[in-house]
């Protein structure tokens, strides 16, 4: 497939890098300020080099990238909430031209799911978004295989940063601030960790899951949310004494959608440690399906994008 990549952060760059080995041709790349287009296929190494050395991908504009010839648009700009712009507009442009869209950006399907599905119905293009939840974990293809109508609930650890902090607090008995500083030092948490530690990121993922699983349209506002930043070390210690631990759990079931710190069995499936994610899918006929793996990272997320591209090829 010929792919145009919008967004050249860790995920966008990994997509440019992995496209060729997966049999795709990158024909256009845009970052926040510029773009580069070559209908015959870009030299991935050259584009990435230029991004690294000059801080930009090329001499052209984002509009030139959006207007270029491609089969699928990969939207990998940073997630925005509210009206999910500018990603939503990129999706509209691509679908309007009957092109496929693969989202890494959570905004459009978390905040404007109905609009996106509506535009998809009017288009010959399709929208896929495996990369939006659980990084490399095949969450939506699993749900697709089981059939959303056979899934009664989904829950899991959906944010690696929060999970890393809680794991460190448990293992070392350190305070939240200490564990956060560690996470920031090794690049697991951003300088402004709000999105991760307040539960927003996990809540957006739950909203997307709920949109896929239920007939109701969810947005961030409809998700009950509590973060981890106020949890004292003593709470984790008490949990551990009782054979439990605390994890930030996202849950989608018949009674609603919520993200909250929860007590889970210390040795249970949900007590993944470090930046690992886990997703539990409750099915009507086959009990519980657990899938865990790396929930973030450039190559991990790009791997999910490659799986969407493969699905679109059929």
């Amino acid at each position: 497939m010929r792919i145009a990549v919008v967004g050249a952060g860790a995920v966008g760059q990994a997509v440019v890098e992995l496209a060729e080995p997966y049999g795709h041709t990158v024909t256009a790349v845009a970052d926040s300020s510029a773009g580069v287009v070559d209908a015959d296929g870009l030299d991935a190494e050259a584009v990435l080099d230029r991004k690294r050395t000059e801080g930009t991908v090329g001499p052209q504009t984002l509009d030139a990238v959006l207007d270029s010839e491609y089969d699928a648009l990969v939207e990998a700009t940073p997630t925005t909430v509210g009206d999910a712009q500018p990603a939503f507009e990129h999706v509209r442009t691509a679908l309007g031209r009957d092109r496929d869209v693969v989202l890494a950006n959570k905004g459009p399907v978390a905040q404007r799911y109905d609009d996106v599905r509506g535009m998809e119905r009017d288009s010959d293009g399709a929208v896929r978004f495996e990369a939006t939840v659980g990084g490399a974990i095949p969450v939506f293809s699993t749900i697709e295989d089981i059939g959303a109508e056979n899934v009664t609930a989904v829950r899991g650890v959906l944010n690696g940063t929060a999970n890393f902090i809680l794991s460190r607090m448990t293992a070392e008995g350190v305070a939240y601030e200490h564990a956060l500083a560690e996470a920031q030092d090794i690049g697991v948490a951003e300088a402004d960790p709000t999105f991760d530690v307040d539960g927003t990121d996990a809540a957006l993922k739950c909203a997307i899951l709920a949109n896929v699983l239920t007939d109701t349209t969810y947005t961030l506002d409809a998700v009950e949310m509590m973060g981890i930043r106020d949890i004292p070390a003593s709470a984790l210690e008490l949990a551990q004494q009782g054979g439990s631990t605390i994890r930030l759990i996202g849950e989608v079931d018949e009674s609603g959608v919520r993200v909250r710190p929860r007590l889970v069995d210390e040795h249970g499936t949900l007590a993944v440690s470090g930046t690992q994610n886990i997703v539990q899918v409750e099915t009507t006929h086959a009990g519980r399906v657990n899938i865990s793996g790396r929930g973030a990272g450039g190559h991990e997320t790009a791997t999910a994008i490659m799986s969407d591209l493969r699905q679109l090829e059929y």
Binding site: R155, I246, L263
Partner: peptide, 9 residues
């Protein structure tokens, strides 16, 4: 910090 419902997790 609530527990997950019985049987979950």
């Amino acid at each position: 910090v609530e527990p997950l419902a019985a049987g979950e997790g």
